[in-house]
Design a protein around this nucleic acid. Sequence first.
DNA 1: ATGCGGATCGCCT
DNA 2: GGCGATCCGCATT
Length: 230
Amino acid sequence: MSSKINSRRLIKEDFNKSCGDLSLYLLGKILVRKLEDGTLLKGRIVETESYLGGEDRGSHSYNGRRTTANEPMYMSAGTCYIYMTYGMYYCFNISSSEPGAAVLLRALEPLCGLETMERMRDEKMKKGRRILKFSKLCDGPSKLCIAMNITKDNLNKADLTDPQNNTIWLEDDPKFDSKKITVVHTSRIGIASAGKLWASRPLRFYILNNDSVSRRDKKVEKELELFIND
DNA sequence: ATGCGGATCGCCT
DNA sequence: GGCGATCCGCATT
């Protein structure tokens, strides 16, 4: 309804940022997905992770590794990099201006098409229909791919900066004030095998007090709270 | 709230 | 041949 007013589609220059800058910039932006039947799905990005090139042992592009699979990480800023993980799930990344460095989208706050998202999630469940809280429909990197029907076949290498692309794009929400949120900086999830140094680096970012975040770091949140109250 | 085991397969060594 | 940038279901605290 009124949420459409003044929303602006992100363009090439918006994505042309370093991996770290893009990870923070994307918080609060709206991921829009148009399905083949015309259904419009929207979710606010509330959690991201940086995957750097070169030294980053947690990254698929570690040590300059470049294969057909991770090629999108080296493509122009705003390219979709989608890979399958654990044989059954997908993860969705957006490439940055730095070759080999991309941003993993870890969680969305569902805004539009919640019934469709719920159905997509339910279909993937083993047992029958479960009641999921709406805020939890996209609270994980693979959950958001299921809810929005994002697969490698679908959208790998899709260009988010292409104005003609009407299957997936990003929008700015003018009512979202980045100055009114607090961003939690903490460690990335699921990369223990990368070693302590890289597993502990604060390369995960999420909006404090948002219900759709995948995993909170209460320790860091507490420290932030003390800092804010000073 | 927290933790563990199983599912499942494309990609790289 | 082996390994995940995960999720789900069930068990235990």
